[in-house]
Amino acid sequence: MDVSTSAPETAGGAHWPSDWLRATLGFLALRALSAGPSYGYAIISELERNGFGTVKGGTLYPLLTRYEAAGMVTTEWRAGEGGPGRKYFALTDHGRAELIRLTADWVRFTNLSTHYLDPEVHTKESST
């Protein structure tokens, strides 16, 4: 039974199942902001560079807007160099705390999944 779907949100690079990206994009975007304030295209490029594929604006901006409403992100328009301004997103203390919490939860979850998926572990457990 195939329950996962292909990755329509990612146009280039890695093709992860869209369900995986939908579940993780939130804290991946928060992680992209952890180094300092950033803007839409830079966040998309950062995620792409790290192998998550090209996230579309139609996916990223609604997410960041919800985070802004939840007080995890603040926004500021800054004048561009020789061009129109850019909207910068920055993590708030609440956003940073949420990133730490979600990262810890994700590590626990992936460890658990990896452990469960490891056939050797299952063989050992069933033989004892």
């Binding site: 803007y39 839409g40 998309i44 604006g57 901006y61 328009w77 061009g83 129109p84 301004g85 909207k87």
Partner: peptide, 12 residues
């Protein structure tokens, strides 16, 4: 919303 959409389109 309109300005940030224009910004991304100009970048991509």
């Amino acid at each position: 919303t309109v300005a940030s959409a224009h910004e991304l389109l100009a970048d991509t």
